[in-house]
Design a protein around this nucleic acid. Structure first.
Length: 491
RNA sequence: GGCCCGUUGGUCAAGCGGUUAAGACGCUAGCCUCUCACGCUGGAAACAUGGGUUCGAUUCCCGUACGGGUCACCA
């Protein structure tokens, strides 16, 4: 088995494309076959420099290593279509000779006029086969004059064509509905549809996974293969990824590209895992798959016939699962750079990363969540004294004031170089015991004093350890002042 | 508009003539708990529609509705 991924270098990697690449890769690997990368750059107008590099980088980053490709070589090279130019012309001529194609000398002016009329009449744009039956003499004369021409496919006027798709089954269409499409452009470059057929055959591709948008041109492929006397590959057309019921995932929303999600803090393996599941089902109940496990589980019978709507909330949840599976060290490796970026104190090593990361890990779905979670580190966020009043914690402004005043000396007597979570907890326990109240009655005020937030990663004790002794004391003192002021005002 | 394809909870989906119609995300109730999370235990929620075929249709066939794709010297 030989499969291929044949992208055009026109920009970033769309998730739909990535998924096609994934399925193509999985199919080959599952069956011990080869995965070929071919760059389809026949349209020089749409070419975006650097796009080829993006394709390489994305595939590599995701672990979709190809066996043959432009940079790797292989015995079916070159693997860049623009470098294969001479080839296509030869095959197009072969088709002209055997009646499968013909030269068309129609000018762009004539074609524009034709299309204008068709549009005005509300009918589909197609070629009117003006040059289909040019005599040998007429053709020779035009060629001699140096008239530019394209080569078009000579589709039978009658009958039907049937092709087979692995997931849709056999599809039959009347030949009369098929256009005499251009195979070779006037600049000598092949069109995508033609180059595809030639290259897939020459590269001995056995299975083609591609988007459903090619379903309607498949009959013309079938006819081309027939004209050459070649055997078509097995086709597997996969449905699109949608943004909602009626719209495709598009760049407009800035959420269609692989890079977009990496930037937001999604793990590459999560993106792969999630998109594999969009339009394909492994059958069982497990949804978490490494690339290796995907290879093992992949089967085209699980491919869906209908489009799937992309659900970022679900992908987020999967990312969360991966994050929680990370060892503390691994998580810290991902989280530390984000924390340092978000907080100058953290960047200056003023925080206890062990405690912080431990608190962060179960609360992080995507890496960017961390930014908001650590916003209290540099300084306490603005808060209102009223927030000290918490029914569930049984706290009032007065009780909070007492709690903070009681806790403060216990923290002050600690060694600032040994302000560890365990020791802070031990000290605060003493305050709690002294007051003979439940934990929350003391720790809720401390949380608020240290962060200015009602909810934080970790509890009051963690917060103390995270910001360190000096900050903890300073913030509690400020809270005491704030409370005294508020209570005075109440009276 | 012509041609092609599709339609199971809000979303991804299992199902392939007889099921209490899985599971996951989300939502929700509760437990755990110093907050928020994590974790655990429950709950609500679906076969687009009308005809057939059949002892029996979510499952097979036809129509309708809705959605998608395609109709370029783009891929």
């Amino acid at each position: 088995m030989r499969t291929r991924f044949a992208p055009s270098p026109t920009g970033f990697m769309h998730l739909g494309n990535l998924r096609t690449a994934l399925y193509t890769y999985l199919l080959a690997k599952k069956n011990g076959g080869s995965f070929v990368l071919r760059i389809e750059d026949t349209d020089r107008e749409r070419f975006v420099s650097g796009a080829t590099e993006t394709i390489y980088n994305t595939l590599r980053y995701c672990g979709l290593d190809w066996d043959e490709g432009p940079d790797k070589g292989g015995k079916f090279g070159p693997y860049v279509q623009s470098e294969r130019q001479g080839l296509y012309k030869k095959y197009a001529e072969q088709l002209v000779a055997n009646g499968g194609a013909y030269r068309c000398f129609c000018t762009t002016e004539r074609m524009n006029e034709l299309h204008r009329q068709q549009k005005a009449n509300g009918i589909a744009l197609s070629y009117d086969r003006h040059c289909r039956d040019l005599t040998a003499d007429e053709t020779a004369k035009l060629l001699e004059e140096g008239a530019p021409y394209v080569i078009r496919q000579k589709v039978p006027l009658e009958g039907t064509t049937t092709f087979k798709d692995e997931i849709y089954g056999e599809i039959t269409v009347p030949n009369a509905d098929l256009d005499d499409q251009i195979l070779l452009k006037s600049d000598g470059m092949p069109t995508y549809n033609f180059a595809n057929v030639i290259d897939d055959h020459l590269m001995e591709i056995t299975h083609v996974v591609r988007g459903c948008e090619y379903l309607s041109s498949a009959p013309k492929y079938e006819l081309l293969y027939k004209s050459f006397g070649w055997t078509p590959p097995v086709y597997i057309h996969v449905q699109q990824i949608m943004r909602d019921e009626t719209h495709k995932l598009s760049k407009r929303d800035g959420d269609a590209y692989f890079e977009d999600f990496l930037k937001k803090g999604y793990l590459a393996e999560v993106i792969i895992n999630y998109i594999a599941l969009l339009g394909w089902s492994p059958g069982g109940e497990n949804e978490i798959f490494s690339l290796l496990e995907l290879i093992e589980a992949f089967d085209i019978s699980g491919l869906s016939k209908s489009p799937a709507i992309f659900d970022e909330v679900k992908m987020r949840a999967i990312n969360g699962i991966y994050i929680r599976t990370l060892t503390p060290e691994e998580f810290q490796g991902y989280a530390e750079p984000v924390v340092r970026e978000a907080s100058r104190k953290a960047a200056a090593e003023c925080v206890d990363f062990d405690v912080l990361c431990k608190a962060l890990q179960p609360r992080t779905e995507i890496l960017n969540d961390i930014i908001e979670l650590v916003d209290f580190i540099d300084e306490t966020l603005p808060y209102d004294a009223e927030w000290f009043v918490n029914k569930k914690m049984k706290t009032t402004k007065e009780s909070s004031l007492i709690a903070l005043k009681t806790s403060l000396p216990y923290l002050e007597q600690m060694d600032k170089n040994n302000f560890t979570l365990e020791r802070v907890q031990a000290q605060l326990s003493k305050a709690i015991a002294e007051l003979n109240v439940k934990n929350g009655s003391v720790l809720w005020p401390i949380r608020l004093a240290l962060s200015g937030k009602m909810s934080t990663p970790g509890g009051g004790a963690e917060l103390c350890a995270i910001v360190g002794k000096a900050q903890a004391i300073k913030r509690i003192e400020q809270a005491i002042l704030k409370l005294e002021e508020a209570i005075q005002k109440d009276d």
